[in-house]
Design a protein around this nucleic acid. Sequence first.
DNA 1: GTGAAAGCGCTAACAA
DNA 2: TTGTTAGCGCTTTCAC
Lengths: 343, 343
Amino acid sequence: MSRKPTIADVAALAGVSVAAVSKVVNGKGGISAPTRERVLTAASKLRWTPSAAAVALRSAKTRAIGMVAKRSPDLLSADPHFTLLISGLESELSPLGYGLLLHIVGEEPSAEEAAYRRLADERRVDGVVLTESRIGDTRFELLRTLGVNAVLIGTPWRADPVPSVQATCLDHGIRAAVDHLVDHGHRRVAYVSGPEDRVHTVYRRRVFEDALAAHDLAPSHSVVSDFTAAGAVEAIGGLLADRRRPTAVLFANDSMAVAGMSAARRLGVDVPGELSVIGHDDLPLGELVYPQLTTVRQDLVGLGRAAARVLLASLGEVEGAAVDVRPPEMVVRESTGPAPGRT
Amino acid sequence: MSRKPTIADVAALAGVSVAAVSKVVNGKGGISAPTRERVLTAASKLRWTPSAAAVALRSAKTRAIGMVAKRSPDLLSADPHFTLLISGLESELSPLGYGLLLHIVGEEPSAEEAAYRRLADERRVDGVVLTESRIGDTRFELLRTLGVNAVLIGTPWRADPVPSVQATCLDHGIRAAVDHLVDHGHRRVAYVSGPEDRVHTVYRRRVFEDALAAHDLAPSHSVVSDFTAAGAVEAIGGLLADRRRPTAVLFANDSMAVAGMSAARRLGVDVPGELSVIGHDDLPLGELVYPQLTTVRQDLVGLGRAAARVLLASLGEVEGAAVDVRPPEMVVRESTGPAPGRT
DNA sequence: GTGAAAGCGCTAACAA
DNA sequence: TTGTTAGCGCTTTCAC
């Protein structure tokens, strides 16, 4: 197994200087067509590709972007979610030869910060993508002082002037879900949210309330949960125990919705006969279960793609319009139906 | 925002040579305690960390390992699986400062090979981990000729002398599942496998058959499926249409099992009353659904961890015993019960 | 249009 | 024990 060829080998084989080779592969001007040709054939004959390390050292560009994901102990909620975002990211990064450096950290608050710091200090990436926007989020400040490009997938906390991507018409999905429910005669509708420190938790609950208010209704119940199965089960238990229990419930994600739906059925409550259930995100999971889950689809892959474009644009790799992210839309499947007592 | 400090800055601040700094951070000998001390304080005062690019260039070690995942179009099956493996990998890599470079590629055969080639040619990683061992797998050969360290998670194809990790007592889980079923009076048991090009497909089916044979039984049906929801639905449809239909079915993964279970219920077949269902892997999904899925647990996180250790060992980063991977075990939940007509 | 040469930040001989 | 120095493979002025 021979030593990896270097730019010098290519230059020698092509009978030109290393500078010429460099110019050719980087598309810099001042190279005649014939020279160009010879360099290219020499390079492919040698199967030469520039060493990532050398390029990174010389040009201070790593051609990699980083992502750090907090993994909750039961990893129930966030994961399938991440996979979709990552697919979207990769579909934009890969064609440009960018890599995705992934870090999974535990729940300890310091672990996440340490991961970002390391990425920055070691100069391993040209930018990072953040997810799960939190209230009081300090990650952008950190990254800014570290001098790292960053983009947030989701709604920034306050008017924090951070680059971020999100769907247009962000409220459409939940509104449609509420309208759907009300149209089917539901009057007592509950909401089970995710952790309160998430920016989207607050936003989505407000949209939910607004949408109900448009029908002169108020939430029958509003419970804060934690994205775990146990949390969803507990939440549904509480709701169903109420004498004036809801006839429909929206969950902040699909995993909770499925867990909640299962818990209801286990308690002998028919879904959607006695209780309609709606999820959020539209993960593959929702189609697997019985009854199939009605949910609010989010264009997770599109969000990943858009985030990559923003980063790439700030690195001067691409220009122009950000790709747009499809607005959330309701996907009606089997877990919703008319309110009980209504035909 | 000031320029990133270099080793020279640290050396200057500490009043020593750059070589001294290098030796200190790399734990090479020949440094007096006081010098060591001053270097360390200087480094932390400047928040200096060696540049990954420079280290990589100089030492030909990137401190990163790569993984390329084929993403099936409907990404139903493989994904939650990957997340678990990645968690395991990261838990070993992170503490040693190793990064995980992830590539998601499409189904085209060439895409995968291209991804490995790029990782190798650009010298972006010190090793790669492979998953989804296939029959006639050529990836190891490729990686070998590319001169890249690799480790396989799963059973190698034939006696291919490749470093790989897998659980001990690999057959225990499926055997236990079969025994469980037979003990509950099941005599007509079917198997729904994954794609036939996977090594584990063949292996698991054989274990299934052996386990049944130990009870003087043969599979009632054996169908090859594809890890998709649609495939599982179709498979279950076929099985249930048979006049002598099975009273229990094992699926090659949890997603198919859940989809199959749902399809059965939709056809009016009670699970586990009329049909027992068993999955494979024990993904979080199985606990969410109703009835909860009985399944064969696989220590996916442990496999990731073990794979990382193997790679790290071959890079001289750690030594000694590989971590061991917990044997597969059956997790009895709600989707299995006595055979119909038996109390 | 092309090439010579100076580093990017670090490690590892080798000297002192 | 410590410092000097020669590159690792590449990009980029700046001459020619």
